[in-house]
Simulated assay, not measured.
Amino acid sequence: MVCCTLPRWWPVPTKAEVEAIIQMEDPVLRNLHITQTYHVLEVALTDVFGEEDLSWCGFSTWASKTAGAFIRKDVLPGVMAQLLERADAVTRGFSELQDRLLGAWGASVGIQYVLARTVEDVLDEVARHTARGNLVVFQELGPLYTDLLANFTGMDSPEPSRVEAVVSRLAPGPVGEGGQDLLIRAVRHYHEACFTEDPKAHAELMFLANALVGYHEQARLQGPVVAALNAPVKELFLEHLVAFVRADPNPRARSLSEWGLREGFAPLAQRLERLWRELATRMLMKMELPDVTLRLGEDLPALTAERDFPPALERLSHPELVALMAALDRSPDDTAGSAARDWGSLSDRMNLIVDLFRTRQQDRLLYDQPFTFLQVDAFQQGRVPHGRL
Rank of each mutant, 00 (worst) to 15 (best):
R86T: 06
R86I: 04
A87D: 03
A89Q: 11
A89H: 05
V90S: 04
V90T: 14
T91M: 13
R92W: 12
R92T: 08
G93L: 06
F94C: 03
S95Q: 08
E96I: 03
L97G: 00
L97A: 02
Q98N: 06
D99Y: 10
R100K: 10
R100Q: 14
L101N: 04
L101R: 01
G103E: 09
G103V: 12
A104H: 13
W105S: 11
W105E: 14
W105C: 07
A107H: 09
A107L: 07
A107M: 08
S108L: 11
S108P: 00
S108M: 13
S108D: 13
G110S: 11
I111L: 15
Q112H: 15
Q112I: 06
V114M: 15
A116C: 07
A116N: 10
A116Q: 14
A116D: 14
R117Q: 14
R117S: 08
R117G: 09
T118D: 02
T118E: 07
V119P: 00
V119T: 03
E120D: 10
D121H: 08
D121N: 09
V122D: 01
L123K: 00
D124H: 13
D124W: 07
E125H: 15
E125P: 01
V126P: 02
V126C: 05
R128W: 08
H129N: 05
H129R: 10
A131W: 09
R132N: 08
G133W: 01
G133H: 08
V136L: 14
V136Y: 08
F138W: 07
F138Y: 14
Q139A: 05
Q139C: 06
Q139V: 11
L141E: 14
L141D: 12
L141N: 04
Y145W: 13
T146H: 06
